[in-house]
Design a binder for these strands. Structure first.
Lengths: 356, 356
DNA sequence: GTGAAAGCGCTAACAG
DNA sequence: CTGTTAGCGCTTTCAC
């Protein structure tokens, strides 16, 4: 069926050892021989079996990728970045998704180890306290984290704290005082924590009181009544929401619209991620943008450098590579006059007023 | 380092053959022996190497997935569907993306073959005329197409023609007469062709003249002036656009908004795909919905059935499995009074009028 | 420069 | 029921 190295050897009239060398170390074989072997390879359309090869040597040219989900385009964008480089460089990707589940993370990593991946690119729920990562370190298995905000391990991400800080400061600069942060299932994640930290610092620096992050069920079709109440009722209702990611922001916006709030008039919204799709929304979603595709690319490059042992040549000094974030000031943010005067009343009865 | 079957055999005091049987055919080994072996396996934390296993037997438990891109959530949604089932059933996924490039499609399929995947799930540009698929058939390699609309090969998709037909009929029922179809890079794909066919049939059935699909550059940040002119100028400008997919619809909507057209007042928009995200838009995008995740699941099930030889048990009669589409009547579609009276003039100066 | 031979970790006859 | 043995396709000493 599929030709093996034996077939090539027989066809060329040499031993399989020579064929192997012709493939893996062409300079060690007689040019004439090399040529004959190559002709046979072409004639039979022979491609060495990666399986057999990797069983023998340790080079699998296989990289594992562990992602929480593909439902969030953030990760799809990263994966695309990884795949672009990986496939161009002759590596294969083995993909596993975890749905933010610790058991599945463990299982995914184990599976990848069994398959003798040469390295892995991971996004886990919590990088700092992850025992499996320590185990990988111990086992000498190479990995690079993506989007996990930690200085303790090899990682590529934006400075989540600083990015959130910048974003919330921008909200404050637009006159907002009562700003709430919303987080989804990521609440227990390192990213969300860092983002909340940045939020809190920006608030404090402006002399405002940060609130704990409000958790929102991501997958629910509607905002829960209690959350909605939090967001819409009372004189102290927030005028701006900082959502810990864009998808959450979109879900929240829909919830608010259904509750007859207008965006940004009744509520300003700032997301995080910078999904390409956000720009297509109406109004275009303001967001703190991470260069997702580039994060994927950078993670790949770092991993490859470590795998091939050329890591030092990269000239990196720290484990964590921080990529710059950008602020996309979409139309979901309204300026609030920085006076005590109330803004004009609206039919919805909900008026965005500055903090008295 | 990593324990092998030999280590387990030595630890348990049996031969490697017995260990192998304990793993692969537990019923053929003495319960007491089985127990001892299992204890050794646990003690050493042994996991059989998939590599070695697949080199020997033909069971790699590896499935290849070839997708055009992950930038379009349609495919990410499908992939998620596949991954959910696959990982639960102990299969691994090897992912390759092609960017709709024929060379990359060829390369991806070859790579997967080398890796001895047990089967593959593919979305290719054009299924009918794809020589590689014929080759797979000849080689007896199992595959299932996703979203490729062909009856000639194993496939799972919606009835693209009928779906488009239904969608465009709905537009017509809303009073639209001048309806244009827009297509992106998919113009050369089987899906787009089928969708255009459905469009044309719906138009003809209503006594209207179908137009050729207008090609739009997907990746451009703006609609080209010529396209924009097509859409907005003259008394015969369309009142509704049928976009061959949701992402395109979103790009077009942004372009129209920038040209100061209001949706749906100045232009109705109907997409295709039913992206989850579309519902989060404002206004929510009307779309012809394919059950993407289910398509992924169904493709997986069919493939697995073929791989495990239980295909007949599925009771399928035809190669192509058609899943039902649904119509999501979002707010991007406005009704047009079916009279010759013009609708009220608007500031934009562009008034949606029925065909005179 | 080239070939013979020993495995990588496992499965699958075939004996016993 | 269990052990022995022969490979799967390839890489890699070690001789020649």
């Amino acid at each position: 069926m599929i030709p093996t190295i034996k077939d090539v050897a027989a066809h060329a009239g040499f031993s399989i050892a020579t064929v192997s060398r012709a493939i893996n170390a062409p300079h060690t074989v007689n040019p004439v021989t090399l040529d004959k072997v190559r002709q046979s390879i072409d004639a039979l359309n022979f491609r060495p079996s990666p399986l057999a090869r990797q069983l023998r040597s340790e080079r699998t040219r296989l990289i594992g990728v562990v992602l929480p989900t593909l439902a969030n385009p953030v990760f799809a964008e990263c994966l695309q970045g990884i795949d672009d480089l990986a496939s161009a460089q002759g590596y294969r990707l083995m993909l596993m998704t975890t749905q933010y589940d610790a058991d599945r993370e463990r299982h995914a990593i184990e599976t990848l180890r069994e398959h003798r991946v040469e390295g892995m690119i991971l996004t886990v729920a919590d990088a700092d306290t992850h025992p499996l990562l320590d185990e990988l370190d111990r086992a000498g298995l190479l990995y690079v984290l993506m989007h996990n905000d930690t200085v303790r391990r090899p990682s590529v991400c934006v400075d989540n704290r600083l990015a959130a800080f910048d974003g919330v400061r921008m909200l404050i600069a637009h006159g907002h005082r009562r700003i709430l942060m919303l987080a989804g299932t990521l609440a227990a994640s390192d990213r969300a924590r860092q983002r909340h930290l940045g939020y809190a610092q920006a608030m404090q620096q402006a002399g405002l009181t940060p609130a704990p992050a409000l958790e929102v069920d991501f997958n629910a079709d509607e905002l829960s009544p209690s959350v909605l109440a939090h967001l819409t009722s009372g004189p102290h209702r927030p005028t701006a929401l900082f959502c810990s990611n864009d998808l959450l922001a979109m879900v929240v916006m829909r919830g608010l619209r259904r509750a007859r709030l207008q965006i940004p008039h009744d509520m300003s919204i700032l997301g995080f991620d910078g999904l390409a799709m956000g720009e297509l929304l109406s109004p275009p979603l303001a967001s703190i943008c991470a260069p997702n595709r580039e994060i994927g690319c950078a993670a790949w490059q770092r991993l490859l450098a470590r795998v091939t042992g050329t890591y030092e040549a990269l000239g990196e000094t720290s484990l964590a590579l921080t990529l710059p974030h950008t602020l996309r000031e979409g139309a979901t943010i309204a300026a609030i006059p920085n006076l005590s005067a109330a803004s004009p009343a609206r039919t919805s009865g909900l008026t965005a007023r500055p903090f008295a």
